[in-house]
């Protein structure tokens, strides 16, 4: 029975299919909102699903000179990392499936797995655009990862626990966006960096390096990376909402809150110009990391 439950939770709920579909819905919401901000019509609601089906059905071209195992393995690892992370995160305002002390750190590292896999995939692709893209992806990872982690540690320190379940229980009565506004901003912008959304889309700046690390990917591999990315979006948005916007509460209200967060992200994506990679790194280390550290310091002092 235990095993069956575990399989169900990985295959269907909360990870697995339900997460993939909600990832597509989030992706659609994001694309639609950005399109509306940009004075476009935007895609229909099933467009991400149609894209995925199309990609899965397409031929996968393997470039010459790549390590085959890595080329086909990395997308799978990336997606499974993102799906596993979902087990510890309260998606849709429902208590996480599994929980243990310190699962916050595990979740964050599982989320980074996707970015690492993309970097490796780009490096493995033996294409010039991919290599430049991979370098940028990994450079950017080192830029936003520390501030993002620190921003999520703020609520954890306030709740005196590194267990997502406990932190969420604490934030339910404490709106962290009010108590730690700096942390919220850094978490939100860090999430955009993690998802490589504009203005942090230098790793896949199409006008310079085509599609960055994923230039050589097509068909199934590309689809898996895309799914992984939208799953990460669901997890990231849920995590930030649960930590900073008043915990879980009612699932419907939680959904509304995370959609509100998505709206803010779409707005930022529309109004900001892409940063060069040196500007991204400079911004995170000169402003992001220092602000996050100052907030942690303030928390320690005030406690």
């Amino acid at each position: 029975m235990e095993t069956l439950l575990a399989i169900t939770s990985i295959m269907f709920f909360p990870a697995g299919l339900s997460l993939i579909f909600s990832g597509m819905l989030y992706e659609w919401a994001d694309r639609k909102l950005v399109a509306r901000f940009q004075n476009r019509v935007g895609p229909r609601w099933f467009q991400p699903l149609a894209d995925t089906i199309k990609l899965l059905a397409k031929e996968e071209i393997q470039p010459l000179g790549v390590n085959q195992a890595l080329f086909f393995g990395l997308p799978v690892v990336a997606l499974s990392g993102a799906l596993t992370a979902a087990l510890y995160v309260p998606i849709f305002g429902i208590q996480p499936a599994y929980s243990f002390p310190g699962d916050l750190i595990v979740t964050l590292y599982l989320l980074s797995l996707l970015t690492m896999c993309m970097g490796l995939a780009g490096w493995n692709s033996a294409s010039r655009f991919s290599i430049v893209g991979a370098t940028r992806t990994l450079t950017q990872l080192f830029a936003y990862e520390a501030p993002f982690l620190l921003a999520l540690l703020g609520p954890a320190m306030a709740a005196d626990s590194w267990q997502i379940g406990k932190i969420v229980a604490y934030t339910e009565s404490h709106w962290m966006i009010v108590l730690q506004p700096v942390g919220f901003v850094i978490a939100l912008i860090g999430l955009m960096g993690k998802l490589e959304l504009p203005p942090f889309d230098a790793p896949e700046a199409e006008t310079e390096i085509v599609a960055g690390a994923l230039t050589e990917y097509s068909g199934r591999g590309l689809a898996l990376f895309h799914i992984g990315r939208s799953v990460e979006m669901v997890i990231g948005v849920s995590l930030v909402t649960a930590f900073y916007l008043g915990g879980l509460g009612n699932p419907l209200i939680f959904l509304a809150k995370s959609l509100g967060l998505l709206l803010v992200m779409a707005f930022l994506q529309s109004v900001l110009v892409r940063l060069r990679i040196d500007q991204t790194v400079g911004m995170w280390w000169r402003a992001g990391a220092i602000l996050a550290l100052l907030q942690i310091l303030a928390l320690i002092v005030l406690k």
Partner: peptide, 9 residues
């Protein structure tokens, strides 16, 4: 420059 909003407008 990656500023598609201005492009569309």
């Amino acid at each position: 420059a990656g500023f598609d909003t201005l492009f569309m407008y």
